[in-house]
Measured scan of single mutants.
Amino acid sequence: SEIVKHAEEALERGEFVRIEHNGRVIEIRNEEALEELRRWVEK
């Protein structure tokens, strides 16, 4: 997914991403959060 790709690229640069999706906000700061995002987006 485009969202996950964006988050992965930001993590590689040492940045973090805040994503709003279906009214929820998730902050991607590490691999664990990235995995959570993947599960969340796939639903």
Score class of each variant (00 low, 15 high):
29 R>A: 10
41 V>E: 02
21 H>R: 07
40 W>V: 05
35 E>L: 08
2 E>N: 12
10 A>H: 07
19 I>K: 00
30 N>I: 03
1 S>D: 10
22 N>S: 07
26 I>V: 07
26 I>T: 04
4 V>C: 04
31 E>C: 14
34 L>C: 02
40 W>Q: 04
19 I>C: 08
36 E>H: 08
37 L>Q: 00
33 A>W: 05
42 E>C: 15
28 I>P: 00
24 R>D: 05
42 E>G: 09
26 I>E: 01
10 A>M: 10
28 I>W: 02
3 I>Y: 06
34 L>S: 00
31 E>I: 14
30 N>D: 14
8 E>P: 01
20 E>M: 13
38 R>E: 01
6 H>K: 14
9 E>P: 01
9 E>K: 11
18 R>Q: 08
6 H>G: 07
35 E>P: 00
32 E>Y: 09
13 R>H: 05
30 N>A: 04
21 H>M: 15
38 R>S: 03
11 L>W: 09
38 R>A: 04
26 I>R: 02
11 L>R: 02
15 E>T: 08
5 K>R: 13
17 V>Y: 12
41 V>G: 02
13 R>G: 03
25 V>T: 09
14 G>V: 02
30 N>Q: 02
21 H>F: 15
8 E>D: 02
43 K>M: 14
7 A>K: 01
1 S>L: 13
36 E>K: 10
20 E>V: 14
14 G>H: 06
34 L>E: 01
33 A>Y: 04
15 E>S: 10
2 E>A: 12
16 F>K: 06
35 E>F: 06
23 G>R: 01
3 I>S: 04
11 L>P: 01
35 E>V: 07
38 R>D: 00
17 V>S: 05
1 S>A: 14
1 S>M: 13
5 K>F: 05
8 E>Q: 15
18 R>E: 07
15 E>H: 08
3 I>D: 03
16 F>Q: 07
26 I>K: 01
6 H>I: 15
18 R>H: 07
34 L>T: 00
2 E>K: 09
2 E>F: 12
11 L>Q: 02
41 V>C: 08
32 E>I: 08
30 N>R: 02
17 V>E: 03
37 L>A: 02
27 E>R: 04
26 I>C: 09
19 I>N: 00
17 V>P: 08
1 S>K: 13
1 S>Q: 13
37 L>E: 00
23 G>H: 06
13 R>K: 08
40 W>Y: 06
6 H>F: 15
10 A>L: 07
30 N>L: 03
15 E>W: 09
17 V>K: 03
7 A>E: 01
7 A>V: 08
19 I>T: 03
